[in-house]
Design a protein around this nucleic acid. Structure first.
Lengths: 198, 198
DNA sequence: GTTTATTTAATACAAGTGTGCTAAAATAAA
DNA sequence: TTTATTTTAGCACACTTGTATTAAATAAAC
């Protein structure tokens, strides 16, 4: 009966185009019309998949976190690998080290600014914060279990610190790529992680 | 001849009201009409002091950084004071520890998201980043000169790290006050600073 | 080929935007 | 009181916004 269109895939396509618009023109310019045009669809077509603008934006943001979680889940530790290296690479999954991650992070920063004034977004922001926090806690605990971490580290405070370093550097690099370069970002992360080891 | 209105003071008043609107409704809702209404002025009156909306927003952002710099300059070190305490308090000037600082930080976060897509704002963002970076470098160097810092610290990497911690935690607390409380923020900062000492 | 549910296109509408313009009001020196 | 100047108020304009509505196109099922 109907034209065969994979609903979910179409929604993801539109969401990814939404990212593009946000990165290029900002969240406030991510209007239904612009997104439709960038997607080569009519406004009505977009509206067919997303009943409202806020639904579309919410879906787009969720997709960012899903992508990051997806990548994190795919990582597997092999015993031959250097633990520090493995951990560093894992954390780099959420740093803006390439174009794909840069886009995700820029979208997330724009979203975060909106969280401050839009209560309906706080739940999602909250969830992502906690997922990330737990992920980093696992990292620090792994270092402790492997008995390569310094004695007497305060787990909670270390996680707070690591989390802040990761997000802080990501933001600094996005806003100021010339003053905190890609390389400095990685070097600083490595420096910090090494400071946790014996 | 003319009515005696202190132009500069009026502009600052309007800018502060602009902060209020941004904090309450977001940067994209900071329209000339809303700002005028919140200032108990007509649109024409606001336009008399700021020729355009972007001029008004730019001025408002500059005022944020000026306020922070102002506070930093006023701080004086007395020899009786514990250096660690003095340093901690200094850094707290830029953490959202009270309502005033929270407002400034929220405004700044909203502004930062806009920097990504508005090239004309990057210069200001840049300047603030560098001022802050230099300030934190002075902090680390002070600890070194007082010979209470650990040997073998890498100055540049330490400053990168400290800067990321400060801004990262500030952001986390703004977005997630329940999960990174005021107290945890201070405790983590203290924990980090102590880790730099002998 | 006809039917039918899904998908797309196009338009309309009310609300809100920045900004330009004009003239009134308020003020304090002459 | 007069007058020059600053400050204010209000409206008009062209434009963009999200959303609702309606008609058209599409392709599988009968």
């Amino acid at each position: 009966m109907p034209k065969k269109v994979d609903h979910q895939k179409r929604k993801i396509q539109i969401a990814e185009t939404t990212w593009k618009v946000i990165v290029e023109e900002g969240l406030e310019q991510a209007t239904v019309r612009k997104i439709a045009q960038a997607s080569d669809l009519s406004v009505g077509a977009v509206r067919h998949y997303f009943a409202s603008q806020s639904e579309l934006l919410h879906f787009s943001m969720e997709l960012v976190s899903e992508r990051v979680i997806q990548r994190a889940k795919e990582r597997k530790y092999s015993k031959e690998q250097d633990p520090l290296e493995f951990v560093t690479e894992g954390i780099c999954e959420v740093l803006p080290i390439d174009e794909e991650r840069k886009i995700e992070m820029e979208v997330w920063l724009a979203f975060s600014a909106k969280v401050l004034v839009d209560k309906t977004l706080q739940k999602l922001s909250n969830k992502v914060y906690q997922d990330m926090h737990q992920g980093l806690k696992n990292v620090v605990q792994a270092l402790q279990l492997l008995e390569i971490a310094k004695e007497g580290l305060d787990l909670e405070l270390e996680v707070n610190r690591l989390h802040a370093i990761v997000d802080g550097m990501a933001m600094h690099h996005l806003l100021n790529p010339d003053h905190l370069t890609h390389e400095e970002m990685i070097a600083t992360l490595n420096y910090h992680l090494k400071s946790l080891l014996q």
